[in-house]
Design a protein around this nucleic acid. Structure first.
Lengths: 170, 170
DNA sequence: CTAAGTGCAAAAAGTTTGCATTCCG
DNA sequence: CGGAATGCAAACTTTTTGCACTTAG
């Protein structure tokens, strides 16, 4: 009950992305003759449908609500598999944890704003920066394969919270 | 300005920077009533005069040629101290190691090209990218305190080496 | 059937810390 | 002297792996 249609969680754009990724995974697994197990299916679905930037620990917790017995190592190995075949991207934001998100399409890269107060992560795209990166790389005869751009600081929510005098913290 | 760290390049320009950093450290230590020990002096000098992007392990090895008995923990704690007072910057390039380099001046930030083949790290500056980062941050009402931009790929040396070796690609 | 996949526990790998001892100020 | 600093080893954290058992194909 109570599912009013007007609300936000449904993003048709991402559905298309997800099916592309699912397909990519299937092809990869077929080619490498990898097996589809109950655990993998649960982990992959949870990852694809879940929020971005999950840690292995996060994902394990969610996955275990669906299948009690799944172990850390299986989640770890499955995420590694997803990263290998270009379905997930591993990110390290310097807090010592590895995080995973849906892989971008080749032509559609995004970067991150990271709030050092609440830990919130926001994505952004700025094609002009990507262009300049190419310029820099060319200047050094460097062939870029990937890049990482992260802006660390205080997000809007935290800065208005501290203005009001309230504490923040996640 | 471009400083390439993989080669034995000597940089007279940096002498001014080093004295500024030494002074900053002295002020900090005086203010906090920290002590100048033989170990710290060796570690700090080795760090200031050595090449950029050293790991703790690297630095320990060099330091021990000067003072056999220095322990890992002391190097670790001294680098942490240097980072605290703005003399060193800690960098993590995703290979699981922490690396340290001389801190930039406030107005003079640089970023990195990282060769995934030879591990070489080259520094670059591109003010237009910095500008655009500010634009992005403003768009999100985000107050940037620091940022990290890394381009991963194949450096010139490695790509010409593989050209000779494998004889394909152009 | 048989090789891939799983779960567990232990190993790695890097970072941090507790503590007895040393030594700067 | 007294507290800061050191060196060692042990504790931690997160990631990775060895292995015996299970199971997909």
């Amino acid at each position: 009950m109570v599912r009013t249609m007007s609300e936000p969680s449904h993003r048709p754009v991402d559905d298309a992305l997800r099916s592309r990724l699912r397909e990519r995974l299937e092809l990869y697994m077929a080619r490498k003759k990898l097996r589809s197990t109950a655990q993998r299916r649960v982990i992959v679905e949870t990852f694809l449908e879940g929020r971005a930037h999950v840690t292995i620990e996060d994902l394990l917790e969610i996955v275990r609500t669906r299948d009690k017995g799944i172990g850390y190592a299986t989640v770890y190995r499955t995420l590694k598999l997803l990263a290998e075949c270009g379905v997930a991207s591993e990110r390290k934001f310097g807090d010592g944890l590895s995080r995973y998100e849906l892989a971008d399409d080749d032509d559609d890269h995004h970067d991150h704003l990271i709030c050092t107060s609440c830990g919130g992560i926001t994505e952004f795209e700025e094609p002009r920066i990507e262009k300049l990166q190419e310029v820099v790389a060319a200047r050094h005869n460097f062939q870029v394969t990937t890049h990482k751009l992260e802006l660390y600081g205080i997000c809007q929510a935290c800065s208005s919270a501290s203005k009001k005098g309230a504490g923040q913290r996640n």
